[in-house]
Design a protein around this nucleic acid. Sequence first.
DNA 1: GCGATCAGCT
DNA 2: CACAGCTGATCGC
Length: 782
Amino acid sequence: MPPVNAAVHRRHQSSASQLPQFHTPTNAGDDDDLLPSTQTVLSSRFSTSQKPLTTSDLSLHIRASKRPKRSTPTTTGQVNIHCDVGFKPNFDRHDGAAALDDGEVFGSSEMDLGCSLDLIQPSMVGCSYETHDANSVEEIFDGDGDFYGGTDECKGSKVKGGYLLNSIESRLMNSRVDCDVGVGGSGVDKESSDDFESDKELDLLLNLHSQLDEEDRISGVGFGTEESYFPVDEDLIQCPLCGVDISDLSDEQRLVHTNDCIDKEDAQAQTTAHTPDKKQASGPQQYADNSRFSTVLKWLHDLGLSKYEDIFVREEIDWETLQWLTDEDLNNVGITALGPRRKITRALSELRKESSAVETCTNTHAPSGTGKHSNNGSDGCEGSTNGTNRTPTNKLITDYFPGFATNKKNACSISTGQRDVGKKLPDSLNKDKSKTAKRNVRNGKLGTVPVWSCIPGTPFRVDAFQHLRGDCSHWFLTHFHMDHYQGLTKSFRHGMIYCSPITAKLVNMKLGIPWERLQVLPLNQKVNIAGTDVTCFDANHCPGSIIILFEPPSGKAVLHTGDFRYCEQMGSLSVFQTCRIHTLILDTTYCDPQYDFPKQETVIQFVIDAIQAETFNPKTLFLIGCYTIGKERLFLEVARVLRKKVYVSSAKLRILKCLGFSAEDMQWFTVNERESHIHVVPLWTLASFKRLKHLSNQYASRFSLIVAFSPTGWALSKGKKKSPGRRSQQGTIIRYEVPYSEHSSFSELKDFVKLVSPVNIIPSVNNHGPDSARAMISLLSS
DNA sequence: GCGATCAGCT
DNA sequence: CACAGCTGATCGC
C-alpha cells in the first residue's frame, strides 16, 4: 500500500519515464477504474473497448480493494491528471487552492489534459496547524450533534446486499431471475396529473425513439420500425390493427373504428387465452371522450341508482375513476345516503375483484400529425393480445409515454372537490405548475394518485405514501429519500410496506415504523406477493434503493425504476433478456440531453485530484456534501484512495451503520473531527456561502482555507456553464459543484430504454418547463 | 407537549 | 430549476 502522503511526494518530481505503470485489464469486468477515453466515458466503464492508458496515467486508483492486480504506485514522478469529460485542472493559482478551470466543455475531443502538478505553489506550506474545539463542527452542522436531527440508535445491521457492499455488478451478474412471459391484457395507461408534455421532452423522446430504432432491435420484441412510430406520410392514417385508411374519419370515428378492431381481436384471443372475457372483467369500453360517462351511467342504472347520474357527470367520474372511489369519496361528492353508498361500494368491490384478474385493452390510437390524440387509455393495441406478435402501428410518442399528451383523467384519480387538481391548463394559466403540483402532492389524501405510483395489473402502489388510500394494502418503497417516503408515519395502518433490507432498517429506525408492517424484499430473487411475482434489483441510486419488477398474472410485466442510475451491468441481468417489459415506469429526472454528466468514477477522481492537489496545505478543510443517504460512494472512495479518514457526525455514522458497509469500509469514518480534515456535511450546508463562512469562522484558528464539493447532477443544469467542476469562491472559501449524480444521465436513460424495450414508458418525474404549445393543442383538442 | 402537516427556502 | 432535504409555523389531539 502506498504511504499516506505518497501523492505529496509524487508531486514534486517530474519525470515522464517514471510514470506509474498499470496492469492492462484482462477482462471486461476489470477495467472499471481505468480512466476512460473520451469515446467511452459515456458508455460503460466495463466496456471492453476502453482505450489503453497512454500518457496520462494517474497514480491513484478507485476501488483499490477490488483491484489488487493494479500496482498502486508509490514512485515519484510527474503526475498527469487525466480528466475525462473535460475536467481541466488548472493548478496555477497561488492561493493555495487547487483551482479548476471552467473552460473545458465536457465531451470535447481532447481529454488528456496532462497538467503537471509541479505548477502548484505550496504557498500555504508551513502554516501552523492548530487544533480546535472538537464539538464545534457538529454544533455548526446541526446544533445538537445529530446530522439530521435523528436520535434513535441504530441497532446494528448485518444486512447485506445493495449499494456498495455488494457491488452492483457482481450482484447483477449473479441474478438468477427467471422471468416468465405471460399473456393477457392489462389496463396500463393511466394519465398522471404530472404529464410529460414539453416540447423539449417531446423532442428528446422522439430522438430517443429514432435512436432506438436505428439500433438493432432485439428480435423485434417490443418495438416496431421507425416508420411504425412515425409514419413517413403523416397524412395517411391507418388503423393500427386492420391497416385500413382512416384518414378521412373524425377523431371520434377513428376511435370507434380502432376499438371495434380491438374488440374483434379480443374476441378471437379469448377463444384461446385462459383469461376470462376482458371486456366484462374491467368494464365496458370507452369509445370516445364525450361518451365516457355512458358506461358509468349504465352501470348506475343497473344498480337502480340513476338518480345519482348528475353527480357522476358533474364530478366527471368515468369508468376508470369509478374503480378507485371509496365510500368517503362518494360521500364527498354528495352521495350522503348510506344505503346507496354501500350499494355502490359493494358493486365496486366486485368490479375490482374482476379487474384484478384481468385487465382490458382499451387503447385507441389517434393519428399523428393531427395535433390531436385520443384517449390513451391503455396499452394493448400494438398488436394481438398475446403480447408477442405486435402489429406495427402508427405508434405515437404519446403512446410511448402514456401520460404525455392526453386529456383523459388519470385512471387512478378520484373525483372530489379537488378534481381539477392536475388538470391541464393553458400555458398562461400554468405558470405556477410546479408549485401547484407540489401542493397537490402534499395534499395526498384528497389529491390525485400519480400514475407512476400505480402498478398496472396489480393492487400495488410504489412510493405513494402521500396518497394513502384504503383501496390498497401493498405499498412499496423504492428507497429512503424523503420525497419518496413522505407521508409515511408511525401511524401508517394501510397494510404492508415492501422494501429492501437497508430501506426497511432506515424506515424502522428513522420513522418508527414497526417491523410488523415491513416486509423485506431480497435482491435478485423472485417472490410472490398477492399473486404477482416481484423481483428487486439494485437501483444504483442510494444505499438500499431498488428497481422493482412486477409480473402480474396478466403477463404484462411492469418495471418500476424508482430513482436509479443505469450502469451497463444492468444489461447483464438475465431478466432483460428473458422477460418482456410491458410498462417501464422510469426515473426521468435528467431526461434531457443537457444532462450528460460523466460517470461517478470520473467525478470521484476529480474530487480526489483536487483534494490531493491541496494536501500540501495542512490548513485546508475539505467538505463533501451528502444527503441523509446518498453520495456515500464519493466520500468513501476519497477516503480509501487517499487513505485518510473522513469525519462524519455521530448521527451520520448511525445511518452509515445501517447501510451494510463492510468493516473495512467503516474504518474510514471517524466521529472525531480532529482526526480528519475531510468532513462529510449535509449538502445544504454547502449551498450558501453564508453557512460556509460561519463554518470558516468557527475553524479560523485551525483552517485557513475551505474547499467544498457539492455533488449534484444539477451542476450541469440549464443556465449554468457546461463545465464539470463549476467553481465559485468567496475569500478563502472555494466551492466546486461537481456533476456527481445518483440518477441516470440522458444517455444512460437512452441505453436503459433500449435495453428494456418496453411497450410503454411512464415518466416518474416531470421537472421540465412549461407545457408546450404542441402538447397543449393535444390536450385541448379532444 | 407532541405528532403531523404545510409553507418557504436552499 | 431543484436532486433532497431543513426550519419554523400551525393545527388537532
